[in-house]
Design a binder for these strands. Sequence first.
DNA 1: CGGGGATTTGACACATATCAAGAGCGGTGG
DNA 2: CCACCGCTCTTGATATGTGTCAAATCCCCG
Lengths: 276, 276
Amino acid sequence: MTATAALQAFAPVPMPAIPVRDVARGNIAKFPTHCSSCGLRESCLPCGLSGQDVDHLNELVYTRRRLKRGESLYRAGDEFSSLYAVRSGFFKTVQTLEDGRDQVTGFHMAGEIMGMDGIGPETHICNSVALEDSEVCVIPYSRIENLGRDMHALRHQFHKVMSREIVREHGVMLLLGTMRAEERLATFLLNLSQRFTARGYSPSEFNLRMTREEIGSYLGLKLETVSRAFSKFQEDGLISVQQKHVQILDVAGLKRCMGQKSDEASRVSGNGMKIA
Amino acid sequence: MTATAALQAFAPVPMPAIPVRDVARGNIAKFPTHCSSCGLRESCLPCGLSGQDVDHLNELVYTRRRLKRGESLYRAGDEFSSLYAVRSGFFKTVQTLEDGRDQVTGFHMAGEIMGMDGIGPETHICNSVALEDSEVCVIPYSRIENLGRDMHALRHQFHKVMSREIVREHGVMLLLGTMRAEERLATFLLNLSQRFTARGYSPSEFNLRMTREEIGSYLGLKLETVSRAFSKFQEDGLISVQQKHVQILDVAGLKRCMGQKSDEASRVSGNGMKIA
DNA sequence: CGGGGATTTGACACATATCAAGAGCGGTGG
DNA sequence: CCACCGCTCTTGATATGTGTCAAATCCCCG
C-alpha cells in the first residue's frame, strides 16, 4: 500500500460526486436510478439484501452510463474509482501484454460486476468494451466502502462477488491448462447457456455477441480452431450454428465432450457414459 | 445467495471459537500470536495498517497451525470458515475437475493469503497442500467481517488483497492462453525470483519447492516439456539448474524469452532488444 | 448494390504431448 | 556402510492437436 493510499484509508470519505470522467464522456442517465427498484436486484451486487437495507441500497448506484457497441467503459491505466454493474447489453474485458498480445479475460452480461481488478492496483488493468449497445450502473467504490461500514450484509455480499470472480477464473485456468479445443468450446457454450437461462432467456438458443476471434482469445485458441469446433459440433448434431446464431440440440452430448481426451471421444458408449 | 446465507448475513456474529476442525487436526500453536508483533506484517493482510489499529489487529489471528510436508490445509468441499496466511513454508493450491484432471492454480509463500475462493461458495473449492513443513495463521473469516465494520483500513486492505488475486489470475490466464512453453517457464521463474526478493531472499538463487510435474500443471504443460525448457535455458546460459536448485544467470535473457514467438527467438539482436 | 469484415475450409507446419528408457537422488533397512 | 527401492528428472523418438497461411464464401451495413 502506498503512503497516499494509507492516508486515504483513514481520511473521512465524503460521498463522491459523479466521477469527472463519466460526466466528460457524456451519456449519464438523466434521472438517478435505484437498486431497490431494479429488476436485476436479485442477480446483481445487492442480491440477498433485505428490505431493511433498501434505503441504503439506493445510495449505492448514483448514475448509469450508456455505451454504444465498440465503446470502452474503461481502459487499462485509467484511474480506478468505480465498479460497474451491467444493466443491459454485453461486455468483454481484455488484458494486454507489453508486447501487444492480448486476451479476452471475460464476457459479462446483465447483473455481473466489472472492474474489481482495479481495487488493488488503484488503476484499471484491463479494457472493458461493450459488444453491443449497453448500459451499466456506476458504483463508486467509495460508496461500497462507506456503506459497507454499517451494512454487514452488503460487505459480505461484496466479498462473495469478488470471491466468485476468483472461482470463475480458477475455472478458466483449468480450461486453458487442461482442456482440448472442443472441450473448451463445449464448456464455453454450456456456461453461456446457463447464464442466459438464469436471466430468463432460452437455454438452448441464443445469439453470440462476440466474434470467433474473441471466443478464441478467451479460450486460448485461434479463430480457425473455434470455427472448426463449431462445425464439428454441428456435424455431430450437438448444435446448430449459423454465424452468431447458436442452437444447442444435445446438452448431454456437449457435456460428454467436456472431460474426455480425443481418443476417448470415439469410444463413448451408446448410453452416454464415459468409459472409465 | 442461499436463504441460510442470507440469515447468517444478518445474524449477530459472535467472535468465533477456534474452528472445531482445526482443533481436531491438532497442531494448534500453544500461544496465541499477534499480527502486531509479526515480522510479516508489512507483506501480509495487515500491510499498511497504522498504529492506531494495532490493538484491533491482534484480534484478527487467533491461532496458527503447523503442517508437515504433504499435509492438506483444507480440501475441496470442506466448509469454509477461515482464510489462511502463510507464515512460513510453501503451499500449492490444486483444483480438480469432475473427471479427475486437476491443475495447480497457485503457489503460495510467506505473507500470502489462501482460501478466498471459499467465501462465495461457502465451501472450499480447491485443495491446499503444504509443499514443505509450514505454518499458517488461521484468520476466521467472521473476524474480518466484524473488524471490517470499524476498521475502514482493514476493509479496504482486504478488498485489495482479493483484487490482487484476481489480477494475478488474469496474468495466469494470459500466460496459459497466449504464451509458448519457454515463455511460460521464464515468466514463472522471474515471478518466483521477484517474490523471493521481496521476502529478503536471493533474487538469483533458490530452491524450487515443487516438482516438475507441479510446475507443469501450473503452467499448463507436461513435466517433460518443463524439463526440456529448463535444459534449454541452461544450454543458453540463462540459468543453472540442478534438480530443484536454480540459479538465474541472465535476467535480461529470461525477460527476452517472454514475449516472443519461437521464430523471433533467433532474430533477437545483440543488444537484447526485440525486433519490432 | 457494393465493400469489407467475419467465417469457413483446406493444406501444411510446428510445438508440445506421448511413449519409453535410463540416470540421478534420497530415504530405508539390513 | 552399503544396497536397494521408489520417485523425480532427463532425454530421445514419434504422434498429434492446433497454429499458420491461403483462398473462397457469406453476410451485414452503409
